[in-house]
Design a protein around this nucleic acid. Structure first.
Length: 731
DNA sequence: TTTTGATAACTTTTT
DNA sequence: GTTATCAAAA
């Protein structure tokens, strides 16, 4: 937009409406973030105290950006307003009431990896042999339950009422898992929201305190809120009723994570007299891009009709290209990117989106080969790397003696004679005395079945952790983290290993990067910068004005709440490679949307479920609408997955976008309403096999995954093929 | 106890 | 094709 401070009439209405609940239905690229920023700024300019405004965003990065932009419009205001993700907001509130919640002052926030270990332990403890490989499944079931505000007890009741044995098993695992979690004085992601709701429900005084406090409430990406977040929003808004939610039902892509589109669809009945503002003027994309995306999304049923329009010039048409395989797809993408560079695009103007992280590899290779600067966002999360987690675990274990989860992680890293046998002996002792692992370690002399070496190792570790805790008192986060790496011998240990193993050398680099990240955190403070007197522009955080210097605890929390999307840096001069999910909320002049194949995008698991297919379609819509000027859709005829070659038909979304004619068979449309994603076959149909040539289907047997066809090939051979694996395509 | 090698599981998306 | 996990050897 020409003038960043001008607003169109609908935007202005959304910014200035002061009559209570407000729903802003904001299509892709219609200036949704602008509206929120301007609304917050104008509230502040009208005299609202910034610290009585709460704005909830989807990622920490978005929160940062919003703070910065509000500050530019209402100097000082952005720094004081509460701008957080739901999880960061919950963590902040829970910390100030840790005591009454029976939580340690420095409770740990556990991530998915920690959850998985804990669930695996719980499963083992319950002797559920058959379930031992399903830890991830249980983690997600438990997480979903928490999103829906079902604690372990409620879940057990619910499972019993359903008379569902598998749910009852989940309930048992949930219960043991939760006990372990509490014993470690920790919360997982779901707990942050669940405990906040419990706090509000259980303590009227605290609830009213916050209801009174937040005079104005804004929630971004409301279509992707889960039940817990919905309840939090509703609770906080019930006093002043100044709630503004912004979102787009067509961009709801997180139902698998517990989000309910109905939260936004039912806003008007939830808040009678709610004002609804629709933003339909798109400032981002060319008409060609917009039309293709609209054609796709219109195939979803039961959506709120809305039509985006733009006054932007036509622009080049959306391109579609089919390639032989995923390597060709990547090479073509790199070639096209190089061409755009020649045309004057900068690498940071371009993005490659894919459905699954596994697809990133071929693009990395192709871009490296073509010497185009690029960056994969989020495939292996930085804070989930082993060495980084180990370093953080040391800090957590030192700070929180109850944190058995972190302690067990680093018990023998680097090796100190506390191997598997010793660990089991210590854990057995801890269990017997119903104490934390740390206490067993402290009383290693009383623990049976320990070798002298193990006893010595235990004593050293206890000493080390105590020493670290004492040192943390006087150190900033960066020095504290450095102390961890030095004093634990972790650094020296890796250095030794790195001599013979380049992978270990890479680990050292990651730890160096961790130290950089802590330093950066320390400098920017991670917390709100002090209010600046006049200029809204970049200001040096005034250290003296802060209530307390940043400490390692704060860094640990920020690291735990870090999201993948937060790793994206718009200023980096490189092509961005990311999943479509991560692309939500971003925009790029040129976008390559790749892997548009049946079975991959939409992904094959949507076979049976029309709702999931609609979510895939929304995901595709999100991907397409990120593009401002150029949009290229790519798909590969064959693709190697798991080392096995699959041949895929072009995605139905390409047909739906009106970009290539439907195939003669009309196969894609016929499947559009949930038939198997695999090729639809019938007897008599002509097919092609890369090895055996063309032939005719003479018989069909089995069904679903086991669907087999007998093909009489023109060569004379007759073969029975499992449709799932056979690289057959219609001839 | 630690390192090494084999095996099985994994891939949909993540706050 | 890769990575995490588990058993046997040093």
């Amino acid at each position: 937009m020409a003038d960043p401070d001008s607003l169109n009439p609908e935007q202005r209405e959304a910014v200035s409406y002061r009559g209570g609940p407000l729903l802003v239905l904001a299509g892709a690229g219609t200036g949704k973030t602008r509206v929120i920023v301007h609304r917050v700024a104008s509230l502040i300019r009208e005299g609202a105290a910034p610290e009585r405004i709460l704005a909830v965003t989807f990622t920490n990065k978005a929160a940062e950006e919003m703070r910065r932009r509000v500050d530019a419009l209402a100097p000082g205001g952005g720094a004081l307003a509460w701008v957080y993700t739901f999880h960061a907001f919950a963590a902040r509130i829970l910390r100030s009431h840790a005591q009454r919640l029976g939580l340690p002052r420095r409770f740990t926030i556990y991530d998915q990896d920690d959850q998985k270990r804990l669930v695996a332990e719980s499963i083992k403890e319950l002797g559920l042999e058959k379930e031992k490989n399903k830890a991830s499944l249980y983690v997600s079931l438990i997480s979903r339950a928490k999103d829906d505000l079902l604690d372990a007890q409620s879940y057990a009741i619910y499972a019993m009422a359903q008379n569902d044995p598998s749910r009852e098993t989940v309930a048992r695992v949930y219960e043991v898992y939760q006990k372990k979690l509490s014993a470690s004085g920790g919360l997982d992601f779901g707990d942050l929201l669940l405990k906040l709701v419990e706090l509000f429900r259980g303590d009227a005084a605290i609830r009213e305190l916050y209801q009174e406090r937040f005079l104005h409430l804004l929630v971004d990406e409301y279509q992707d809120t889960n039940h817990a977040q919905y309840i939090i929003t509703k609770t906080l808004a019930s006093k002043h009723r100044n709630l503004c939610v912004v979102g787009d039902p067509d961009q709801s892509i997180y139902s698998w994570r517990g989000a309910h589109v109905r939260n936004i669809l039912e806003f008007e009945s939830d808040f009678p007299n709610a004002k609804v503002v629709r933003l339909e003027r798109n400032y981002r994309s060319t008409p060609n891009i917009l039309q293709a995306a609209s054609l796709v999304i219109e195939h979803n049923r039961g959506r709120l009709k809305k039509s985006l329009w733009t006054e932007r010039p036509e622009g080049p048409s959306v391109e579609v290209e089919e390639l032989a395989d995923e390597r060709e797809e990547a090479r073509s993408t790199a070639r096209r990117a190089a061409r755009l560079l020649d045309e004057g695009f900068s690498p940071k103007d371009m993005a490659v989106f894919y459905r699954t992280n596994a697809q990133s590899r071929s693009f990395e290779e192709a871009f490296t080969l073509a010497q185009i600067p690029h960056r994969v966002v989020g495939s292996v999360r930085f804070y989930e790397r082993k060495e980084v987690k180990d370093a953080l675990a040391y800090a957590r274990a030192a700070l929180n003696p109850a944190d058995s989860i972190s302690l067990s992680r680093i018990l023998n890293v680097p090796p100190r004679g506390l191997g598997k046998a010793s660990q089991e002996a210590l854990e057995a002792h801890a269990k017997k005395t119903s104490a934390a692992l740390r206490e067993a370690l402290e009383h290693a002399d009383k623990v049976e079945n320990l070798t002298p070496a193990a006893r010595q190792g235990a004593a050293e570790l206890v000493l080390l952790l105590e020493q670290l805790r004492r040192e943390f008192e006087a150190l900033g986060p960066a020095d504290a983290m450095e102390a961890v790496l030095q004093k634990t011998g972790y650094w020296a240990w890796l250095e030794g290993l790195a001599e013979s193993d380049p992978e270990e050398a890479a680990r050292m680099e990651n730890l160096q990067e961790l130290l950089n990240a802590v330093r950066e955190f320390e400098e920017t403070c991670g917390e709100k910068p002090a209010p600046s007197p006049a200029s809204g522009e970049q200001q040096a955080p005034a250290r003296a004005a802060l209530p307390e210097a940043p400490r390692i605890e704060r860094f640990l929390e920020s690291a735990a709440l870090q999201t993948q999307a937060d790793a994206y840096d718009a200023n980096r001069p490189s092509v961005t490679l990311m999943t479509v999910h991560l692309a939500k909320g971003l925009e790029f002049p040129a976008v390559f949307l790749t892997g548009l194949e049946e079975g991959l995008f939409p992904i094959s698991s949507v076979n049976t479920n029309p709702e999931e297919l609609e979510e895939e379609r929304r995901l595709c819509y999100v991907g397409m609408t990120r593009a401002k000027e150029r949009l290229t859709l790519l798909h590969a005829a064959t693709r190697r997955v798991f080392g096995r070659v699959y041949s895929n038909l072009p995605s139905r979304f390409i047909f739906e976008a009106g970009l290539i004619g439907r195939p003669a068979e009309d196969a894609a449309m016929a499947r559009a309403h949930c038939a198997p994603a695999a090729m639809r076959v019938k007897a008599g149909m002509r097919v092609r096999h890369p090895e055996f040539g063309c032939g005719e289907i003479v018989e069909k047997s089995g069904s679903g995954e086991m669907l087999k066809v007998t093909v009489a090939f023109d060569s004379g051979a007759t073969k029975k093929l499992l449709l799932r694996y056979a690289p057959l395509s219609p001839a």
